[in-house]
Design a protein around this nucleic acid. Structure first.
Length: 197
DNA sequence: ACCGCGATGCCCT
DNA sequence: GGGCATCGCGGTA
C-alpha cells in the first residue's frame, strides 16, 4: 500500500492534538517474511500525565513501568493488563500518551478477520497483531521498523473526516477524570470498540 | 440489549 | 495483597 512517512516530531505536540491527529493514520507491521499488515487508526484516548488521575504517571509516579512514558515523543508505551492483555500507546512526552483503542483492517487480513472486527479494542488489537512488551520504548515513526505509523496517501487522510469524542473507557475509579471527553473516534466507522460513544 | 462476572499475572504499596 | 486504560460469556428481558 502507498503510504507517506510522518516527521519524527509528529508526536511532539499537545497530547489531545496528537490523539486527534492519529485518527485516520496507518499502523503498519512488516514481518520478517516480508508480509505486511496495514490498518487504519479509528479510535484513540488521551492520557494527560501527572495531573490526570486516570494516567499511570498520575502524581509524578516514576516507576519501572512508567519509564517509557517519560521517553521521547513518538516512542511506544506497551503495558500488560488484567493478566492477559497488552495495550499500545504513543508517548507524547512528559508522562503523557495516547492509547490506540481500535483499528480498521485494510491490508493483509482476511475477510473473516474484517467481519469479526479483530482489531476493535485495545487488548484485541495487540493480541491479533502480536504486539507485546517487545515493542515497548521502540520508535513508532521509523519507516524501517517492524511496527510504525504513517499517513495514507490518496486515501482517507487526504480528505476531511469527522472525529467524534466521548468519555474514556474503563476508568470509573478516577473520579471526575472519568468524564473528561478524551476518547476520540472516526465518525461512522464500523470498527470502533465497545462500549459505543 | 444490557448486566455481572471470572480469568489471570504484573505492578506497586 | 489489592487493583487493574479488557474481553467474552452466560443470564435475564
Amino acid at each position: 500500500m502507498n503510504f507517506r512517512p510522518l516527521p519524527p516530531t509528529f508526536a511532539r505536540k499537545d497530547t489531545i492534538e496528537v490523539a486527534l491527529a492519529l485518527i485516520g493514520k496507518l499502523l503498519i507491521l512488516q514481518a520478517q517474511d516480508f508480509s505486511v499488515r496495514v490498518s487504519r487508526i479509528v479510535e484513540t484516548e488521551a492520557y494527560l500525565g501527572e495531573e490526570d488521575p486516570a494516567c499511570h504517571t498520575f502524581g509524578g509516579r516514576k516507576t519501572p513501568r512508567t519509564q517509557a512514558m517519560y521517553g521521547t515523543p513518538g516512542t511506544a508505551y506497551v503495558y500488560f493488563i488484567y493478566g492477559m492483555y497488552y495495550c499500545l500507546n504513543v508517548v507524547t512526552g512528559k508522562g503523557e500518551a495516547v492509547l490506540i483503542r481500535a483499528l480498521e483492517p485494510l491490508e493483509g487480513f482476511t475477510e473473516e478477520q474484517r467481519r469479526n472486527k479483530v482489531l476493535s479494542g485495545p487488548g484485541k488489537l495487540c493480541r491479533e497483531l502480536g504486539i507485546t512488551k517487545e515493542l515497548n520504548q521502540k520508535n513508532l515513526f521509523d519507516p524501517g521498523a517492524a511496527v510504525f505509523i504513517a499517513a495514507e496517501r490518496d486515501g482517507l487522510e487526504e480528505h476531511s473526516h469527522d472525529v467524534i469524542h466521548g468519555e474514556r473507557v474503563g476508568i470509573s475509579s478516577a473520579g471526575d477524570a472519568a468524564h473528561w471527553p478524551l476518547r476520540f473516534g472516526l465518525k461512522d466507522s464500523a470498527f470502533l470498540s465497545s462500549p459505543r460513544f
